[in-house]
Amino acid sequence: MTSGSALDRAPIEVLLVEDSLGDVRLTREALHEANRAVHLHVAFDGVEAMDFLTRAGSNTRAPRPDLILLDLNLPRMDGREVLVQIKANESLRTIPTIILTTSDAEADIVKSYELQANCFLSKPVQLDAFESLVKSINDFWLTKVKLPQPVEGRLP
């Protein structure tokens, strides 16, 4: 049972897939403010993200994330392809995957939901709004939502 409300519980593992260092820092700051129990992992492109999730290369000890924050426009392998691979993978597909991007183009929104994204969020320009959004993510996805326990036998 995952729960992020108490400091003494196991840390909450969040994977942020984001190529902008500025955004990584902002998200880290905002998440830290919202929930000290969050343990943030960062992948700077789609390939790194899939390596982390499948524990490939140097990621043999990588934890299974409780939540994935995925940007769409990424180098090497973009967010859409990452989304396709996550949702095609039986053990990964139950991890809530949130699209967090600057785009608010209708086409991107539609495509993301078609590829089974759990929700689509646009990054607000204002810091206050961004902090508020991250807080909402924590309150909902990391606190209120009940998620299935990962099946141990199926863990990669």
Partner: peptide, 10 residues
């Protein structure tokens, strides 16, 4: 712009 705005606000 978001970077400029966010970090000046921060």
């Amino acid at each position: 712009l978001r970077m400029v705005a966010s970090y000046t606000q921060l």
